[in-house]
Design a binder for these strands. Structure first.
Lengths: 221, 221
DNA sequence: CGGCTGCTTGAATGCGGTCAAGTCCAGTGG
DNA sequence: CCACTGGACTTGACCGCATTCAAGCAGCCG
């Protein structure tokens, strides 16, 4: 695809874009993890509202809306490909199949969002962490970053806590329980799932959420 | 807009569409409240993941994706206008401005979704309920259903609980506290906000979330 | 080495869930 | 008209989960 304006590599902690600032291009994440998060109105609380894995368009919402309403921050060192919104707009003017494809990506994004609502609203801590790990396994597997229930997840327990709506202290406890239950182990940024079905049951995880068989892959060239 | 195929009125509790079932048209909500919710994988838990107010497109996600991944249920008696997806598709083939407008609606939807994640993940019960009421006031005001901090919200406390990730018993307690704090009163489906700023501060509500000045209104004719 | 960050564990507090009883309706049918 | 019913709401008591505060440890780096 010729709309790509080149690759960038950014260190962990880099701010891809800041809430409220207009951004001229959408980013496709090629490698690493990116978090999208929002501060409370007074800054005293903060919540990660989405986590992007390789293959995800990070801020496609900004394309029709011009402005992003949350912060986008690299959790690990990342590689991203920029797609200038103006170029995308030109392409779409001539080809509404592309428009549909991009739009569909945003609806997948929305599906993941309500899934996060579900996790944080309906599940207790142990189930929430299990659910989160199931989701990451599925999405990273679709991005070819997980085999045989093993994958790298280079997040601190504080990051996981922010993603699951609990403190890092409690994340530590819940991971211990999952380990002691023989479901999975998480250590030094590596996740190993020993009992998929058990972990899914524990996390009330619907394995066909994202019915992602039909996802349209993008690659920048 | 000629894409509308007519109005329907449905009673409270009606199922507009069911998770996994293909649906041939998108619905614009004209009057009433509609909840979108998901059951856990084993059905033992349930979570409302979005709430639609008049003026919202309820299931536009189904348009590019064909299938909906959650249930859509009328909370009150509702009036909806159907927009057959096939007709929308024809329109869009000739006019990509419409595509952009519809797409933008789905991104607003996504914004509301992460806002729900924030509410359930980062806020305690009292703040969550306050936040929820602030959001409803804003959205219903934009839909011309709220004046002077007064609006109808015909939901049971169980509904509110499902939307905020807590039990109806606790919703009752939190509403009492908000009332005793002089922030707002909720009774028999009516909400009266006495202290907007106080309620926003309590709910960590960002008044410019949805920066909805620019929202594009739809009306069916 | 000292300082830092991330992880672990313990103890105490309190928030929110659960269970249960009781009130207040609107609706139904005698 | 009144008894009965069921749903929505309220309140109290109890308990358990998660936060908070704190201390301790391991690894990393200046």
């Amino acid at each position: 695809m010729t709309a790509c304006a080149g690759l960038r590599e950014l260190p962990a902690g880099a701010v891809l874009s800041r809430r409220g600032h207009p951004i001229p291009s959408s980013q496709l994440l090629l490698d690493g993890l990116i978090g999208r998060s929002v501060p409370g109105a007074d800054g005293s609380v903060r919540q990660m509202v989405a986590l992007q894995v390789p293959g995800d368009f990070v801020d496609l919402h900004s394309f029709p809306q011009e402005v992003l309403d949350h912060d986008v921050i690299a959790i690990t060192p990342v590689t991203v490909a920029a797609f200038p919104n103006a170029r995308l707009r030109e392409l779409i003017a001539g080809d509404h199949v592309l428009a549909m494809a991009l739009w569909e990506l945003t609806t997948i994004d929305a599906t993941i969002h309500w899934h996060w609502s579900f996790r944080m609203g309906a599940l207790r801590a142990r189930a929430a962490v299990a659910n989160f790990l199931c989701e990451m396994e599925l999405r990273l597997r679709l991005a070819d970053r997980s085999q045989g229930g093993q994958f790298r997840l280079p997040m601190t327990q504080s990051d996981i806590g922010e993603a699951c709506g609990m403190t890092s202290v409690h994340v530590s406890r819940m991971l211990r329980e999952l380990r002691q239950a023989g479901l999975c182990t998480v250590e030094s940024g590596r996740v190993t799932i020993h009992d998929h079905d058990g972990l899914r049951r524990m996390g009330r995880f619907d394995p066909q959420f994202l019915h992602l068989g039909k996802v349209t892959g993008f690659s920048p060239d």
